[in-house]
Design a protein around this nucleic acid. Structure first.
Lengths: 192, 192
DNA sequence: CTCGATTGTCTAGCGGTGCTAGGATCGATT
DNA sequence: AATCGATCCTAGCACCGCTAGACAATCGAG
């Protein structure tokens, strides 16, 4: 019995190693550099081992995305809980979101740009993703305004943040105005 | 002299054919299906011919993106010019933007999701892209509000539209609420 | 303690990708 | 009409994601 448990532990550990290595490699050299060969070499196993843990590269990306979603949810809640008042809370939320995207570009790509084979807006949406949206909803629901569905407002606010994050990182928006855009976004969208 | 001109015409025609075929193939089967081999086969030339027109696949994507940007600018101006009053104009602009993204997903991807090797927010930004932004600015500048830089406001509005477009198309946002989100966006962001 | 079965891992390879070197062919010019 | 340069294609490179089948290590039964 204990032998089997040890093996399962080792297996789980190796799976974490795969995901962590993929994430690290992606942050260092971009997702294009994350090939199954390079990944296998880094974890010091052969390629087929990857396929005994994941169906393919997509699922590895998906695993990184889920890890990232959980981290983002934590970061958002930490930022909002340290803020006093609705406006400060929403500002902190927006900053934390954009900051996460800027600091973890590869993870953010895994979550929203790449195909990680993850479902959304359905019942089979993975828990961490639903929770990250819930973290947004918690702070944004209170500033949606009268007669506006909190979820709809959160979707819009999220979309704006997502647009800012991706366009900024792609070099489409000058980074030095990020703070001003953030404040404008909050002051216009949120009903304080 | 005329011989050389004819050859140049033929060459230009073939280049248009390449771009149009790439776009068509991408809209039909997605950009993953646009391989240099398939593209070459469709235009009934061999692969190396592509490389006598473009440095590589990236540049082909970039060419589709530029074509799309020009079309989008036209579509945005057409939509706004047919609207009376600031709010109607901004609503029409937002609808036209989201409509373009939804109707031309592959082109939109070429413009903003894929790496087409295009520069942005620099002096060497290609003209069609600057013009598309200008088309946004024309209608949004008048509703930026006092003391708010029109360009900054346009960037924010654009980011929100971009976020709505990409998240909706990726299945992250339910499409049936698009209209409600659009109206909420306009009524909150724009100072009417 | 040995031996067969099961599990785990690796080597090798398939069909595909973007891209290019080098030879053949065609056509305009002298 | 001969030449010579532009044009295009065949063939191939290194790499990709993924998998079949051989091999070794480990386990359980006798």
């Amino acid at each position: 019995m204990s032998v089997q448990e040890r093996k399962e532990r080792e297996r789980a550990g190796r799976e974490r190693l795969i995901v962590a290595t993929a994430r690290e490699l992606a942050e260092q050299q971009g997702w294009d550099a994350v090939t199954t060969r390079r990944l296998a070499e880094r974890i010091e196993y052969s390629q087929p081992v990857l396929y005994s843990h994941f169906r393919g590269k997509r699922e590895i990306i998906g695993a990184v995305a889920l890890e990232g979603a959980a981290e983002m949810a934590t970061a958002l809640r930490a930022a909002t809980s340290a803020a006093a008042g609705p406006r400060a809370r929403v500002i902190a939320l927006a900053r934390a979101y954009l900051d996460f995207a800027a600091r973890n570009p590869a993870v953010y790509d895994a979550m929203f740009q790449l195909d990680g084979g993850l479902a959304f807006a359905h019942e089979d949406t993975p828990e961490p993703l639903k929770d990250a949206f819930a973290a947004l909803l918690e702070s944004l629901g209170e500033v949606a305004g009268d007669g506006v569905h909190p979820a709809l407002f959160t979707e819009l606010f999220w979309a704006a943040l997502h647009g800012l994050a991706t366009l900024t990182r792609a070099g489409r928006l000058p980074p030095e105005d990020t703070e001003r855009r953030t404040e404008l976004l909050v002051d216009r969208l949120a009903m304080l």
